[in-house]
Amino acid sequence: MKAFDNYNPITVFIYFASVITIGMFCLNPVTMNPLILFLSLAGAVTTYLIRNRTEGAQSHLFFFVMFILLTVINPLFNHNGVTVLLIINNNPVTLEALLYGAASAAAIIGVIYWFRSFSQIMTSDKLLYILGNISPKFALILSMTLRYVPMFEKQTQKVIQAQRGLGLYSDTDFMSRVRGGTRVFSVMVTWALENGVITSDSMTARGYGITKRTFFSIFKFRRQDIILSAASVILFLIILAGVISGSVNFKFYPEISYAGTTVISVITYIAYGLLAFLPAFTESGEELRWKYLKSRI
């Protein structure tokens, strides 16, 4: 089971749009609420871990270092804030700037992690399905391109081998690599353009352009999709209302100040927590259901 893979692409899109929009929306000096940003980061990392488990563990290290760097760089350049920690070259390093750096780093890395999961789940055929609903023609041309890319890569390898066998390609030094590269690319351009007519004939033969196309797809919109999409949209609206109302406002400069804890702010935090961990919830729900079904056998 991989979180979200079985959902309709539209559902997946709605979910990620909601959670990422809020994550990015809070990336401004007025509403940069550390709790929301932290929830975003935690949810993003959890979602990614659910899909990938221990795979590609070293990439986490990279982002951790990036987090530290972003945190540290801000106070070195930004001298706002009232709580001076130390002074470097006559420039004060402030606590506010440091915390601001940490919060913005959380925001940026959170968004990056959301996109990492999004890229994995939203494979090209799913994106095509979404685009097919907006513009069948654009989706078709994209699909054609996606068909060509692996084909051209394979052909590029063949061309490299062929030219090498003729003694016209080598990659021993920089200049011959450039020369070889242009040669291979030149062969590819001719090959691709000249044979394009076959694809074109094959499209015409099957009646392309006669009437308005439909867009076929193997994805279905099921009940689970309705539930998840509705949940995403409702939570999104609640959070948006909460943020706009100003009850989760948070300011770092000149000194840390924030709107007090109110019913609205608590609801907003809970709503965002739910939204950010939705993939984790659906995943564990699935697992429980399987366990239950298994135990019944």
């Binding site: 055929d125 699909s143 054609m144 694809t199 094959s202 009646g207 392309y208």
Partner: peptide, 18 residues
């Protein structure tokens, strides 16, 4: 070169979509 789209199912549907 005759294949137009990137997935088998999509290729099968291509003519009917048209």
């Amino acid at each position: 070169e005759q294949i137009v789209t990137d997935k088998v199912w999509h290729e099968l549907a291509f003519g009917l979509e048209n």
